[in-house]
Amino acid sequence: MSALLVAAQAQKQGRTIVAVDITEMAVAADPALILVTYSLGSCVGVSVFDPEAGVGGLIHCMLPLSKIDPRKAADRPAMFVDTGLPALLQAVYDLGANRRNLQLKAAGGGSPLGPDEVFKIGQRNLDVLGKVLWKNGLELRAQCVGGSQARTLSLDLQSGRTVVRTDGKESEL
């Protein structure tokens, strides 16, 4: 939604925006980059940053569990929270991030209005996220989840600043 604005702003500051599409992830150790993912509804976006190593990553997962289609999970681990998050963590470790420095933040996991929606994809995405983090002995530092809003999540690899944008309003996570 505000992709163009974000890109224009970043360009002015000599920064490069890397858009992370749905079912994708990006990791880098380049302080010139800002990782952004748009249109988080029931999907969950997770950012991870190691300020000491200057390594960070962002993922946009669509569904909770890979067991519904292991073939797709093998092709695109970032489609599912249970395969995507471990892949993201491994990728930042490979770039030199240290587990004890990791700052993890999440946004998304929304749902339509009212209690009637039967699929509960957003809530289940958040549940599985919690489980994967627990297994890894990690915790979220901050989150902006649930509700019926669309969210944009960005991670600045220079400062580690993580920003959520909803309805045109920005707030730091």
Partner: peptide
Amino acid sequence: RDVGWGMGA
């Protein structure tokens, strides 16, 4: 819509 394909205001 849940997934966010073409999600607006």
